[in-house]
Each structure stands twice: as structure tokens, then as C-alpha cells.
Nucleic acid binder design. Structure first.
Lengths: 150, 150
DNA sequence: TCCTCTTGTTAGGCTACCCTAACTCTCTGG
DNA sequence: CCAGAGAGTTAGGGTAGCCTAACAAGAGGA
């Protein structure tokens, strides 16, 4: 399975919340690809056991497909959350997460998951606010405890 | 240019420190691909103006190629440094950086660059050590200033 | 009902990679 | 100096994606 196939799976998952079948057109619009490209991918993913595909009907995820989708979804959320927490705006964080999630391995996901947890445990620590300011302005907020001599 | 092409460029850059020409075989070994695959890519990259290619001789980077390589190198270093700083072991950090660098956009690189700088400015802050411990052990080091009631 | 619009599919073709088999060049050692 | 080893190239083929053009199915209104 290529990286792109994973994106199809995620989108299908997203579009099928509630168990509805997913149509070629919706997916084509999401991915900005042609209808035939989607049909073709549906067939390949069905072949590989991720989708139930019936001509002129649409697709649903198999258990295997859903499992993969849930995994990808989790990665995506982690990565997005991480990037957003550091200061990327939400849209950007989402887009970047989308690309990174297909290449990164589980250990890295774990690392970042822990990092997000760690930050959330501390309820947005002061250093994070300081970092964000640094990222946005390029300047460091003066740390009030340290006085530089004139 | 596809993602893979960028990997070729980076490897060529790395193998040509000192200005030496780079041979098909070395690249093939690095990437674990066949010799013809490398020849083919050399030709494509030369066509696109990144390499000087002469049959049976080897390649050198053009200015355009070097510029790209330097950019990729910087990204790579940033990503690796970042992952390593958080606690991934060096080899792993390197491998992951390799994959991520080809998909991420400049803003994200900037974000992570700033983050690395921020940490280094503070000379490995205490929270980082605490985070690493959390990542490795799954447990939080008790923060000495906060006492929980019995 | 049936005709038309929309959606879906097939056919045929493209690029970026990858491969093996077979051939060619370079270069070094005897 | 020239033969053979080893490196490089060409030819031919494969997969994953993408596209357009042309045709097919199905659903809704006259």
C-alpha cells in the first residue's frame, strides 16, 4: 500500500461516520482528483481487503480497513495536536500532520504523544508560552528573574 | 521532482564533499537500489539541471543541485536534532528525519528550528529532562515542590 | 413511462520509480 | 599492451498514481 492509499482510507473513514456508504464523487472532491482515479483506487483497496466495493454503489470499510483508519486517525490527531500546541495555526497543523503521518514510524508517534501528554499534564507550562512568543516574534521574552547588567 | 529524487541529491551531496565526482555504485549501495535505477535517476536529475552527468564517468552537483542539497541538509539536521533532543536515539532520529524532511513545509521547519534554538538557549532546561524521563519510563518524576496529601 | 442529468466505469495513456538481463566501457594487472 | 573483472548503460517490463475521452447506469421530473 502506498502513502496515497492511506489518505483514501482516512477520507473514506471520515465520510462514513454513521455507517453510510461513501461515493466516488465525495472522495474525488476531497482529494482533488478525477472520478476515475477514485474508482481505480476503490478497486485496488477492495482487492487488498480494506473496502467493500460494489459497482455504482459506493464503498464501506471492512474491519481491516476500519482498523487501519482508526490507527491513522490517531496518528493524525497526535501530530496535529503537537504542531498546534507548539504554535502552528490549526489549519496548517492539520495539513502538515496529513503529510507527516504517512511516513513516520510508531516510535516517533509515541514520542510525540508523550510530549503532548506531558504538556497537557502541566496545563500549558510557562516555557511553552515563552516559546510560542519566541516563535512568533523571533524574540525572547525577558525572563524576569535574570537581570543583565547595564 | 519526486521525493525520491531529493534523497538522491542528498546522498550525492554527501558523497561529494571535497568536490569528487560521485559514482553510480556508491549511490546504489546507499539506497539499496540497482545500478540501472541510479543511472536512470542520474539522467533525470541531469535533465532537470541538478547534476552534471557524463556517461561512464560519474556526476557532480550543479549550483542549482548544491543549493537544493544544502537546503535539504539543513532541514534534515533540524529534524534530526529536534527528535534527538526530545529523546529519540540518534540513529532513529536520523532515519525519521530522512523521511519527514521530504514532506514537511518550510514553516514547520522554521517552527522546529526555533524550538531547537529555544531549548539550546536555555541549555537543556529542567522540563526537558523531566520529559525525557517520562518518555522513557512512562512515569513522571515527582516534582519536589508540589506535595500531594496522603 | 422515458428522457435527461449526474455519477460511475472502462479504455488508453502518462510519469516516477523500481527491477532483471544483456551488452559495453574502463581500467588495472600480468 | 591487452584481457578480463567490475562498473555503467540500454532494453524491456512492472506497479502506483494520475489524467481525459467515451460510454453506461440510475434517479428524478415531465
Amino acid at each position: 500500500m502506498g502513502r496515497r492509499a492511506e489518505e483514501y482510507i482516512e477520507i473514506i473513514y471520515d465520510l462514513s461516520r454513521g455507517g453510510e456508504r461513501v461515493h466516488v464523487k465525495e472522495v474525488a472532491e476531497r482529494l482533488n482528483v478525477s472520478l476515475p482515479s477514485v474508482t481505480e483506487m476503490f478497486q485496488r483497496l477492495a482487492e487488498a481487503g480494506f473496502l467493500n466495493y460494489h459497482r455504482y454503489y459506493g464503498v464501506t470499510l471492512t474491519d481491516k480497513g476500519r482498523k487501519l483508519a482508526e490507527d491513522l486517525e490517531k496518528r493524525h490527531q497526535t501530530l496535529k495536536e503537537f504542531l498546534h500546541l507548539l504554535g502552528l495555526e490549526e489549519e496548517e497543523a492539520d495539513r502538515e500532520a496529513c503529510k507527516i503521518e504517512h511516513v513516520v514510524d510508531p516510535e516517533t508517534v509515541k514520542l510525540l504523544t508523550k510530549f503532548v501528554e506531558f504538556i497537557e499534564m502541566h496545563d500549558s507550562p510557562r516555557w511553552l508560552a515563552r516559546f510560542r512568543k519566541y516563535y512568533l516574534s523571533g524574540e525572547l521574552e525577558r525572563c524576569p528573574k535574570i537581570k543583565d547588567g547595564v
